[in-house]
């Protein structure tokens, strides 16, 4: 048993290290003095300087963030309403309804992207940031639904019933009791939908108006032209750093909450 445990440990940490090799190399080369992506020729901050003067990077980064934020808000609203409706009121045929809502999660993204692009073109809806957002919502609302539904099913209704017995009406109970109880699942859903939307390339690529780049689309156009310079590495390094700080703070916060 001891041997197996040790092997398991070695295996686990080897894989973890391997996961980080590409990331580490990417970070290291963001400081490369030369333009080579395979040979390191000395430390320099040149890539960071050229990054900060590249307006297209920041424009597309900004587009990614604001579209993703709207996607998260809309998806959460729709997801909460659907999850609440399906689990609480159990309408007739709710199992079929439940499967229908989850179909977009199972259908491959490239299929969703091309069918949506075709549809928009046939109906004559011009491409705009709105079409990107609605395309993302069509995937993210079911994703939020999936996470929130699990939460709704998991808790008993006693708290809500107590609130109602004590004289709160249904809307008040929903706002004061149900929503606070949902918060952990809502945060998890917000996190996942944001990551998905912010990182999405395929759907955005097919539903964006020309000239409107999100960060993944901008990076792709550079990859397609073979023009990936190290400023992209610099940007990724900054993103990893920010993500690290955020996640660390969140973890600290959660630890604090769980000790109370």
């Amino acid at each position: 048993m001891k041997v197996v445990d040790t092997l398991l440990k070695i295996f686990f940490w080897t894989v973890m290290v391997l996961i980080y090799v590409p990331i580490a190399v990417m970070v290291a080369f963001s400081f490369n003095a030369s333009r080579s992506k395979v040979v390191f020729e000395g430390f320099s901050l040149e890539n960071y300087i050229s990054l900060f003067s590249n307006e297209r990077v920041w424009g597309s980064f900004y587009n990614s963030i604001w579209t993703a934020l709207i996607v998260v808000v809309v998806s959460l609203i729709l997801g909460i309403l659907m999850a609440y409706g399906v689990t609480r009121y159990r309408p007739r045929g709710s199992t079929i309804l439940d499967s229908l809502i989850m179909v977009p999660i199972i259908i491959p993204e490239i299929v969703e992207a091309v069918t949506l692009a075709l549809f928009l073109s046939i109906v004559g809806i011009p491409l705009s940031p709105f079409t990107i957002i609605i395309g993302h919502v069509a995937f993210d609302a079911p994703l939020a639904y999936l996470i929130l539904k699990a939460r709704f099913q998991g808790w008993n209704r006693e708290y809500e019933e107590a609130a109602m017995t004590l004289g709160a009406d249904e809307i008040r109970t929903f706002v004061k009791v149900t929503i606070p109880l949902m918060m952990p699942a809502v945060l998890a859903a917000a996190f996942l939908t944001f990551i998905w939307s912010y990182d999405d390339f395929i759907k955005t690529f097919f539903t964006r108006p020309t000239g409107f780049d999100t960060l993944p689309v901008y990076i792709w156009t550079r990859v397609a032209r073979g023009r990936v310079e190290l400023d992209i590495n610099a940007l990724s390094t900054i993103i990893v750093l920010v993500a690290m700080i955020f996640t660390y703070l969140r973890m600290k916060l959660e630890e604090k909450q769980s000790t109370i």
Partner: peptide
């Protein structure tokens, strides 16, 4: 009205999915 409530909760999401997911799929 329980049925009305159900419809109010479900329709925004279902309509969005119907128009921007299922309909495009059928068109394709």
């Amino acid at each position: 009205d329980r049925r009305l409530k159900t419809i109010l909760f479900l329709s925004p999401g279902l309509i969005t999915l119907a128009v921007f997911f299922f309909l495009p799929f059928v068109v394709s």
